[in-house]
């Protein structure tokens, strides 16, 4: 298992480098460059001079090598073109906010979605199932920003219980996390329901019941672990989406997270900040997918057995 983890971690290196090269290349080919951003509407000769001073007149491959060296060897993303702040420091400051937001979002999605899905599967075609299905359909099709605004209207404006926006204590996080997680809850509920329906009709579940195990034990110890594999995959994708894709919720609640950072940087043509933000987001997305794969390996006895067999063979 440890071997597997290391192999996956090693595989991440070319992925991250590949993403960096891709992002750099796309931005390199985009019309306009950092010198134009810095120079504003300065005469063309001044822009050219700035371009020369910044090394932007060098060949693509030299600039790419320079960037890769700075990012991977010196761990320096450089300075933001517009704000002149350290991109690494900006990301360090902003990323935790997006991470908190995504972690709590996925925790609620998992801890609410799985029980709901299990309940729906165990009560197939009954009222509980219909309610759970209706709930998941409703929230799958509800845009997050709309839900966020409805929460604001209710809890901040009408009831005055929660602050409408901003950063601060726990109370500031409740609405953003809820708005961000409902979609995830709905997706995981649907996935859990369909996985469980498949699993509970399997022979091994019938066998477990025939051995006289209680219904709870059958579900928790036999059915659910086998149904979890696709759920973990879906949860992993959802987490990644919440991490990088929560920008609309970040905007609604004025959360200075990585999504907001990226959108602002794109709007300001701050190429270096965009590159830094995208690379860090992709790094964490890779880590999340690794965690999801490890989670699948952990809960699936067949995967575990596969690694044990590999070890015994050696």
């Amino acid at each position: 298992m440890i071997r597997y983890v290391f192999r996956r971690l090693a595989l991440m290196i070319p992925i991250i480098i590949g993403v960096t090269v891709l992002v750099f290349t796309i931005i390199w080919f985009t019309p306009g460059d950092a010198a134009e951003v810095l120079a504003g509407n300065a005469p063309r000769e001044q822009v050219e001079e700035l371009r020369r001073l910044m090394g932007l007149d060098r060949p693509y491959i030299v600039q790419l090598g320079d960037y890769l060296y700075n990012v991977f060897i010196r761990h320096d993303f450089g300075k933001a073109l517009v704000n002149k702040t350290s991109i690494s420091a900006d990301i360090v400051m902003r990323f935790p906010k997006s991470l908190i937001f995504a972690v709590f979002g996925i925790l609620i999605s998992v801890f609410a979605g799985i029980p709901l899905g299990v309940y729906a599967a165990l009560h197939q075609n009954k009222t509980g199932d219909s309610l759970a299905t209706a709930f998941s359909l409703l929230f799958v099709s509800t845009p997050g920003f709309w839900l966020a605004l409805m929460l604001v209207l209710l809890f901040a404006y009408r009831l005055g219980w929660l602050p409408p926006y901003g950063m601060g204590g726990v109370e500031y996080w409740i609405m953003p996390v809820l708005a961000n997680c409902f979609h995830g809850v709905a997706i995981i509920t649907r996935q859990t329901r369909s996985s469980m329906l498949e699993v509970i009709r399997s022979d091994f579940v019938v066998m477990a019941r025939s051995k006289g195990l209680s219904e709870g034990e059958v579900i928790v110890r036999h059915a659910l672990p086998n149904a979890l594999i696709p759920i973990i995959a879906v949860a992993g994708m959802n987490f990644g989406g919440m991490l990088g894709g929560g920008l609309i919720i970040e905007k609604v609640f004025s959360i200075p997270g990585i999504g907001n950072y990226l959108v602002t940087a794109v709007g300001q043509r701050d190429f270096t900040a965009v590159m830094g933000g995208v690379i860090i987001t992709s790094l964490f997305f890779s880590l999340v997918m690794l965690a999801a794969d490890l989670g699948m390996a952990f809960v699936d006895p067949r995967v575990k057995e596969q690694y044990s067999t590999a070890r015994r063979r050696k």
């Binding site: 809890f155 901040a156 005055g160 219980w161 602050p163 926006y165 204590g169 109370e171």
Partner: peptide, 15 residues
């Protein structure tokens, strides 16, 4: 948690 803090300051802390 929201109610507890909101009763006093939650609604105002951004305002």
């Amino acid at each position: 948690a929201g109610c507890a803090s909101g009763g006093n300051e939650g609604g105002q802390s951004a305002g």
